[in-house]
Design a protein around this nucleic acid. Structure first.
Lengths: 81, 81
DNA sequence: ATGCTATGTAGCATTAATGCAACATCTAGG
DNA sequence: CCTAGATGTTGCATTAATGCTACATAGCAT
């Protein structure tokens, strides 16, 4: 089909993907490859322009050796790990 | 828009929603109300006709006093709790 | 039997998540 | 300076997730 203007849903999910990814020295492309998604998708998630599906969240957590609950939250994360 | 025939995605997520819900003596309608979704949505999830968004998974886990990882998995659950 | 509750099934509308492509920008190296 | 890599931005197509409505069925009451 055509149209729609997604980007920026009403229900954001906070995440620490960028920190966790940087801690492992991975580029977005690297993480995208490990996870099996487009590298832009990682970017959108890090910028919190939309929230992932549960499957994607689980796969990303696995790629980063983290628990889903450590990486994603409905409430903002505190600064620092 | 129109059309589409969702139901039954390519990537299922296994879950224990039904068991956890029953353990608390809640009907689907009860859980749907607590979670803020349509009661049919709970049914689709229990029958694994599609997998939830991350936000919904988190909210459901919270409604059932469970961890996301205890309730959802990319691999099938063993029988019994 | 009648009725009520829980559940399954089917369709359709709307919106979000994802892929992908084409750019722009910025920075680190050579 | 030039180039390459990483990241941000915009647009559009496709598909999944969700809401909602309606109806069927099965069980359990009264």
């Amino acid at each position: 089909m055509l149209l729609t203007m997604s980007r920026n849903p009403e229900e954001p999910v906070y995440n620490r993907i960028e920190e966790a990814r940087a801690a492992l020295g991975l580029s977005r492309q690297d993480l995208a490859d490990k996870t099996g998604v487009h590298y832009q998708t990682i970017g959108y998630l890090e910028r919190e322009e939309y929230s992932p599906s549960l499957v994607l969240a689980i796969r990303i957590a696995k790629s980063l050796n983290q628990e889903v609950s450590e990486l994603f939250s409905l409430t903002p994360f505190k600064k620092g790990k």
